[in-house]
């Protein structure tokens, strides 16, 4: 299951046929239509959007994630078939962005699922997204897009981080309940 065993043809094919499932809870979703339609047309590179994670290779996170949505993102990510990649859009996924002090958004997506490419900006322009895909293709070709391997290797650690995030909310909820009780 190592990356090096993967034949060249398969790698080339994988590179030119990135099917994505986009998790559009953030504001970045609005940047996707121009990328898909005739202005930028990402189908040129064989990129297509898919309906379910079972069919997809790339998970596109288009902005901030609350803890509640993170649970779903993890579920979707785990339902995808390896090799799988994650592209995160916007500064929210890097350091919380404008939600840096919010109690229920996650600050660094990389702590919970392995991100292959970050696209900076608030929001990134369509060119940025296109560029990210091209970069991902390059990384796949060079054998550097190994987020899914990282997830497998450090599975315990990722799980621990996820649990911490989920439990944090649970704790808060419990405290809230307690407060209400008082």
């Amino acid at each position: 299951m190592r990356y090096e065993e993967w034949s060249g043809i398969a790698r080339k094919a994988s590179k030119r046929s990135l099917w994505m499932v986009h998790f559009c809870t953030g504001c970045g979703a609005i940047e996707m239509p121009p990328v898909m339609t005739s202005r930028y047309d990402m189908e040129r590179f064989g990129i297509a959007s898919m309906a379910t994670p079972r069919q997809a290779d790339v998970l596109l996170i288009t902005g901030y994630l609350t803890v509640k949505t993170l649970k779903r993102v993890v579920q979707v990510y785990e339902q995808m078939q390896s090799p799988k990649y994650v592209i995160a859009l916007g500064s929210c996924t890097m350091n919380g962005g404008m939600y840096w002090d919010s109690y229920n958004t996650i600050k660094r997506l990389d702590k919970y699922i392995p991100v292959d490419i970050y696209v900076a900006g608030c929001m990134p322009r369509p060119e940025g997204i296109m560029n990210a895909f091209l970069k991902l293709m390059k990384l796949i070709d060079e054998g550097k897009a190994r987020g899914w391997e990282r997830y497998k290797k450090y599975y315990e650690r990722y799980k621990k981080n996820q649990e911490m995030a989920f439990n944090f909310v649970k704790k808060e909820e419990k405290e809230e309940e307690k407060n209400e009780g008082d």
Binding site: F23, T52, P53, R54, K71, R72, V73, Q75, V76, Q79
Partner: peptide, 9 residues
């Protein structure tokens, strides 16, 4: 139960 339910758990 490991099924696509639009991300629902």
């Amino acid at each position: 139960m490991d099924n696509y339910l639009a991300g629902e758990l």
